[in-house]
Design a protein around this nucleic acid. Structure first.
Length: 657
RNA sequence: GCCCCCGUAGCUCAACUGGAUAGAGCACCGGUCUUCUAAACCGGAUGUUGCAGGUUCGAGCCCUGCCGGGGGUACCA
């Protein structure tokens, strides 16, 4: 039951008598922002008045006259310049809510237009340990997956892991040169991770070392430019002078950044130079950078030994990320990484060339775009393919094999240009019927306001974060249990189990509740917060409902089949009932632009409403038996909607906390 | 140079894509547990929505120009 859709239907009929196509005007029918304006409002009389050159209030009157809605609403009120305010009839609310109460889906209808969605999310590099930067894509993608599926779409979750890149060249090189055989036998994952870190450190050292001269040269060049800019005499033109002053500041900033970088690089080099073991390894492997690249190339060329090693390494690497997914409660239908597509890439480029979509430029195969000087390169000068190529092959596979109607890419904002290119190229290639959507999310920023980067040392590993979240939840759960009026009721096993659920939920919720497009400042405090607008708040509301049922020894199944009426005389009861009925709208709104924070907003408002209701309307000690039953039904529905809503966010509930 | 994103309360963020008096959480102040879990509730203070114009019945949202921050930008992913 979607109330808004019902009301819009009525308006469509009424407006149809005033204009030919009311569809645009129907968007202006919405739920009220403020309860004093009623429950819903229509704002379409104003623009219509403009269009018909008549006073908007007069138009509003006319709309109301045509409107057949008295079975749902009390008589509409016209206010201000021509707002039409609607207040739902309480008996209608009750009727709809009772229908939702006997519905497994809580009144949320399946979509009338089921589509096949492919969601591309998480996609970590399996050779590296997962870190905090992977959370966003993973939890946002998972939530969209669950929500679309709940509404009846066919949804395919595809984890496009990085399993074919240079990092495997590094591991192969590390295995051949530095492997501790006993350690590898004991725990392949741990040893491979160590090898990756080691080789990465060495390669990074060489890159830093080789890059020093370049940085210094840049400093010299930019300093010179800066001097010239500073020496330039004022032109007398205020605007021009202001502009050049700005340029000087910018240049100064560049020079400062470079100096900082130089200093950091030198320190990094010095640290490793001071380490006798690493220094020795470096002197023994002077060409490690090139050697790693060579291993990667051999792997891609089908070298039997490297392929065998890759096949040996991949399962433990995947098992390692699987462990994290299990803890997070995340699953995928497919995990088709880069390697899955490597033997399709040549054909992709051939096809693009034949269709004149890709052309040669500077020895590389490129797709050019109108109004954009930067092409998308699909094959390098040396013949190697790039991730653009893989993404095209992947898109092709998803449409051809799965019949995707839509592909959602839950990926960092910094790849916006890449996706613009990819989508544009795909459409030219003939994939113009599929909805391609870059579900952008903001960059994870470090405490310094700059993009969060993984560097050895300051990396916040994902596992450590999970442990910390659970540890902190345990403190809060224990304190809460100890403070219960009748004394603690949870044993240690229960506390641990609850802490796990609460901790993981806090972590996910911190991400999901934020508008995905804004940048995200990484903060332990925020991610692990357990009061205020958090998952904990909703889990607590849920547990309180369950506690009412436990205290009163209420059989929920029997209650649901009880035909006694729901009563919404108290304002808190009515508000509760209305909020429950708006679940469907919240889900629809969430999917308009794939924004889970609209669902968290709804659930927070719902749980908030319940807290007020809980305070003001005693359930078990209600004045009459009828009222008691009615309130039990409201409480039961609240618990079910919270549980279902959180489930769509990938968050679980507990019966006690 | 060119392109994209962002700027909202002390802090972290919303604002249903142009609607009525811009809202939450945190932090702060006051009140509420012999009554279903106080992880809560009730009340209080907090704003020139970066600045200046424009569009219109109406602008945080759209347009133009500034200021400030971030990102991207030919063979990394």
């Amino acid at each position: 039951m979607n109330i808004l859709a019902q009301i819009r239907g009525r308006f469509a009929q009424a407006l149809g008598q005033l204009v030919d196509d009311p569809s645009e005007l129907l968007d202006m029918v919405r739920s009220s922002q403020d309860a004093k304006f009623g429950d819903y409002q229509a704002n379409c009389a104003m623009p219509l008045g403009k269009r018909l050159s008549r006073p908007p209030r007069e138009i509003a009157e006319e709309i109301v006259q045509h409107l057949k809605i008295d079975d749902l609403c009390e008589p509409p009120q016209i206010a201000g310049p021509g707002f039409i305010n609607l207040r739902l009839r309480s008996d209608w609310i009750v009727e709809r809510l009772e229908a939702a109460g006997v519905d497994e889906r809580l009144g949320v209808e399946l979509t009338a237009d089921p589509k096949t969605y492919v969601i591309d999310y998480s996609a970590p590099n399996v050779a590296k340990p997962m870190h905090v930067g992977h959370i966003r894509s993973t939890v946002i993608g998972d939530s969209l997956y669950r929500t679309l599926r709940f509404l009846g779409h066919r949804v395919i979750g595809d984890n496009h892991i990085g399993d074919w890149g240079t990092q495997f060249g590094m591991i192969i090189y590390g295995y051949r040169n530095f492997c501790d055989v006993d350690a590898y036998e004991a725990s392949p994952v741990a040893e491979l991770a160590r090898l990756y870190r080691l080789v990465n450190t060495l390669v990074d050292y060489q890159a830093s070392h080789d890059g020093l001269a370049a940085i210094e040269q840049q400093i010299t060049e930019k300093s010179k430019l800066l001097e010239t800019q500073q020496a330039a005499p004022p032109t007398g033109d205020k605007k021009a002078d202001k502009k050049s002053a700005k340029a000087v500041r910018k240049r100064q900033g560049q020079v400062n950044d470079l100096r900082t970088e130089l200093k950091a690089t030198k320190e990094k080099i010095a640290t490793i130079d001071a380490d006798p073991v690493l220094s020795k390894q470096l002197s023994e492997h002077p060409a490690i950078r090139k050697a790693c690249l060579a291993e990667t190339v051999r792997l891609h060329d089908g070298d039997a030994d490297n392929l065998r090693l890759w096949e040996e390494f991949l399962p433990p690497c995947r098992e390692d990320i699987e462990r994290i997914y299990r803890r997070l409660g995340i699953t995928f239908d497919y995990t088709l990484g880069e390697s899955f597509y490597h033997d399709r890439l040549a054909a992709v480029v051939d096809d693009l060339r034949e269709k004149k979509i890709a052309v040669e430029s500077d020895g590389a195969m490129c797709v050019f775009f109108e109004g954009d000087d930067v092409p998308m390169i699909v094959q390098k000068q040396d013949g190697a393919f790039l991730y653009s190529t893989t993404d095209l092959a992947t898109l092709q596979y998803r449409v051809d094999t799965w019949g995707a109607d839509a592909i959602l890419y839950v990926v960092d904002h910094r790849q916006a240009l890449h996706f613009e290119h990819l989508f544009s190229a795909a459409r030219r290639w003939g994939y113009d019927q599929v909805e391609l959507k870059h579900v952008v999310f903001g960059t994870v920023l470090g405490g310094d306001g700059r993009p969060y980067k993984t560097r050895s040392g300051d990396t916040v590993g994902l596992e450590g974060l999970l442990d910390e979240a659970i540890r902190k939840a345990h403190e809060v759960v224990s304190a809460g249990d100890d403070a219960k009026p009748d004394g603690p009721e949870l044993d240690e096993e229960a506390r641990s189990r609850i802490s796990e659920v609460v901790g993981i939920a806090a972590l996910k919720y911190a991400d999901l509740s934020q508008n995905r497009s804004s940048d995200y400042t990484f903060s332990y405090e925020k991610m692990l917060a357990l009061s205020g607008n958090t998952a904990t708040y909703m889990q607590y509301a849920y547990a309180r409902v369950r506690n009412i049922f436990a205290r009163g020894q209420i059989d929920a199944a029997a209650l649901r089949s009880d035909t006694a009426a729901i009563i919404v005389d108290h304002p808190a009861e009515r508000a509760m009932a209305l909020a429950l009925l708006q679940f469907s709208e919240a889900l629809e709104q969430t999917l308009v632009d794939y924004r889970p924070n609209l669902l968290t907003d709804y659930l927070f408002a719902l749980a908030n409403q319940f807290s007020t209701f809980y305070q003001q309307c005693h359930v078990l000690k209600a004045e009459t038996e009828e009222l008691r039953t009615s309130r039990l039904k409201l409480a039961d529905l609240t618990a079910r909607v919270i549980k279902q809503g959180l489930a769509l966010l990938g968050i679980e509930v507990v019966e006690k906390m």
